[in-house]
Write a protein that binds this DNA or RNA. Structure first.
Lengths: 340, 340
DNA sequence: CTGAAAGCGCTTACAG
DNA sequence: CTGAAAGCGCTTACAG
């Protein structure tokens, strides 16, 4: 904040008015003399007056700022969601502060503190891969600051949520693999305290059962979102006695890395092993074979979350809403085993 | 900002002290009685007092907030750079507000206004793909708000910059292609009013000339960062009378899409056409053939930009610094034509 | 239609 | 060691 910034007081002084009048003229109140208004607006324009919103925020007890906590901006899903949020927010005259938890619970806790200290009007949150309890959000609710969770939601907290149909889509994807003749489907399952990891796994299991196949523990791989040593994982899989004939990966990058490793080992995709991705990143179309994946309307989830939060803020209506945005299975060569 | 938030005044009232004393105790001034200090800190802890930083900012005439303007968070380079900035900023006790220009000059101008209105202490900027003049930054300099440009810098503005060695690395990459026996190298050149596009093209041209090859206009493709219709571009290239034997793409996604289209047309990579990417995204390693690319330490550039800006803010030293962070050519199969 | 005053939550010279 | 007062820049009841 530079000393030299023009304030309402200077404009008042230069025009021989009170700051009240200047304030009113600038705010477009109608009970201001037409001439005075014009003079004020002209001078403000000429001096390139920009209101000090910090003062405004203190005065109004609100900051028109949304605090966002996500695991990582490097993750395309979240990057896209942020885009959607910012679009809705800026249209409604809100700012957005983004914090990254880097998949760490400790950092997420700090983020909450930082954002509260900055007096954001509300919070949009997708929890970290480590977050297995939610007491750090109690504080927020206690202060009557609305939260909207999206994607990785905190089920037990009574606040609005934007989710995708993880269970259904995961089931659909698994059924698709089964229909392609796969019988031994390995799945990379995320941390089971995470709402969507849990639902994804449920969808997988139900699909297996409904198809009369046997669900085997050994095909369920406990993983998280920070993957390394993918080659070891692949080696573990192909060294099994009953080697999988399909892999449902946790995300596209994992899928592509697996394909790479498998190809180098001499396996054919999808003939020997079919591979399913998750997130439908643009690259899926351009690899060989093209990667079957699941498309999420991340931007729409972001827009939806922001719109919900802003609605809570503007109307004061605290009714909890749960909105589900449908994902879509995009079938490509990496799982296409039956030629018609 | 909720009404119910605890203030310094309430603590003072509950303890029978003045708010001045509470403020001093909280701030850790030494001229406060040990007992009073303890009582204050304990109560603050118990009530979960969080200072209202909005008030603080107004009082201190600074917000400890850095404003960042980048083209897109969806772009991995910028996503990574942001990560670096936030890391340095939060360590130094600064917040970060991120705005996206979406490669639009008009939006970039709006971003500047928004951030100034929010009274950020300084700005970190990478200009949009449309930005061919810089008068919207004059205002900022006039208000004595420091700017640090990074990657896509505004050359004519006398402020600190963090750049990478675009010229050298682009020359090195082109020479590498020539050493592989390529003689007709097409290059996707970004908008020439952009500092780094210009330097990349210069590097390409100088490499061609120094190798005694002829630099032909038709191999220089005017493109921007928002590519579509890649298939048309490829068709244009392969229909040339003197068909290129190498393509230096504007980024990795463009390179991978080209490879995909070329393969479908029956061309072999790199034997018929070598392809060079730019940015070295993780996917480069996992595609077939693995993509040669250029690695930028985006996170280091982000860290460096934030550190420079914070240094300007804390020391008041306005000396302009230009820091160059070296990129690296990563050679992989997509350009490897000479087997040793 | 306009102005003086109060107040948002904080810090910091100035007294004592 | 502690408190009363002023002030950061703004808005808005309250008078006139």
């Amino acid at each position: 904040m530079s000393r030299s910034a023009i304030t309402i007081i200077e404009i008042a002084r230069m025009l021989g008015l009170s700051k009240s009048t200047v304030s009113r003229a600038l705010a477009g109140h109608r009970d201001v003399n037409e001439d005075t208004r014009k003079k004020v607006l002209e001078l403000a324009q000429k001096l390139d007056y920009q209101p000090n919103v910090v003062a405004l925020h203190l005065r109004q007890q609100r900051t028109r700022t949304l605090g966002v906590i996500i695991p990582e901006t490097m993750n395309r899903f979240f990057a896209k969601a942020i885009g959607g949020m910012q679009q809705v927010a800026s249209q409604a005259g809100y700012n957005v502060i983004i914090c990254q938890s880097n998949e760490s619970l400790a950092t997420e806790k700090m983020n909450v503190r930082t954002l509260l200290s900055n007096r954001v009007d509300g919070l949009i949150v997708s929890v970290s891969g480590e977050t297995d309890r939610y007491d750090h959000f109690d504080l927020v609710s206690k202060k009557n600051i609305p939260i909207v969770f999206f994607d990785r939601v905190a089920e037990s907290i009574p606040s609005s949520k934007v989710i995708s149909n993880n269970y259904e889509i995961s089931k659909e994807a698994t059924l698709h693999l089964i229909k392609q003749g796969c019988k031994r489907i390995a799945v990379m399952a995320g941390p089971q305290y995470l709402y969507n990891s849990r639902n994804r796994l449920r969808g997988y299991i139900d699909a297996i059962h409904e198809s009369g196949l046997e669900c085997k523990e050994k095909y369920i791989l406990q993983t998280d979102f920070k993957l390394k040593r993918m080659d070891e994982l692949v080696r573990y899989l192909v060294n099994m006695k009953e080697k999988p004939d399909a892999i449902f990966a946790i995300n596209d990058m994992a899928a592509l890395e697996m394909i790479h490793v498998l190809k180098n080992m001499g396996y054919r995709i999808p003939e020997d092993i079919a591979v399913m991705g998750f997130n439908n990143e643009p690259i899926c179309k351009f690899v060989d074979p093209p990667l079957t994946s699941i498309d999420h309307p991340a931007d729409e989830m972001g827009r939806s979350a922001a719109a919900l939060l802003i609605n809570h803020l503007e109307t004061g209506n605290a009714t909890v809403v749960e909105r589900c945005i449908k994902s879509q299975l995009i079938i490509r060569g990496s799982t296409h085993r039956i030629k018609k």
